[in-house]
């Protein structure tokens, strides 16, 4: 799995499209910003590159429906499934794009604080399971793993 992160409006999507996607990628682009739900099972997709964009929005959805620890468990279940999907065939890639929301002042609303906390933990879990991580800073990548 490849985790791409960085601040909002920093050009993450453009960088992924330019750098990681080719005509032969056989691309499935699933974006939370389009209102799509977080995919659980990917087995219906045979091969190619799956991009999951806006993961912070899916994490927000988890936090509105489940207690904190369960959010993290559900998230990790998915990470394991996606990783298995990727590794069970040669021509499969999973790219996850998540906005860094960790450096502002403490949000006023409790729900927003929870969302921010859980996002941070979920990103840590994702980072430890990822093979590569790039931080995008206004279009410039910094490979941190």
């Amino acid at each position: 799995m490849h985790f791409v992160t960085g601040g909002a409006f920093n050009g993450k999507r453009a960088w992924v499209l330019k750098t990681l996607i080719t005509e032969r990628s056989n691309l499935s682009w699933i974006s939370a910003y389009d209102g799509l739900t977080l995919p659980n099972d990917l087995t219906h997709i045979q091969e190619g590159t799956i991009v999951l964009e806006g993961i912070e929005m899916w994490i927000k959805e988890l936090t509105t429906n489940y207690p904190i620890q369960q959010c993290r468990n559900l998230w990790n279940d998915r990470l394991i499934k996606w990783s298995q999907w990727e590794h069970s065939h040669g021509n499969r890639n999973v790219i996850l794009i998540g906005t860094d929301t960790s450096k502002g002042i403490v949000p006023l609303e409790k729900e927003d604080r929870t969302w921010r906390d859980v996002t941070g933990w979920c990103y840590q879990d994702l980072a430890s399971k990822s093979d590569q991580i790039d931080v995008i800073w206004y279009g410039i990548k910094q490979k941190i793993k």
């Binding site: 601040g7 909002a8 409006f9 920093n10 860094d100 929301t101 450096k103 002042i105 949000p107 921010r116």
Partner: peptide, 20 residues
Amino acid sequence: LNESVQDNALVYTYKKLLGK
């Protein structure tokens, strides 16, 4: 730009523009 994007339309516009 490294904080959760607020729902406030004006702040959203500001951040998007600054990022661009």
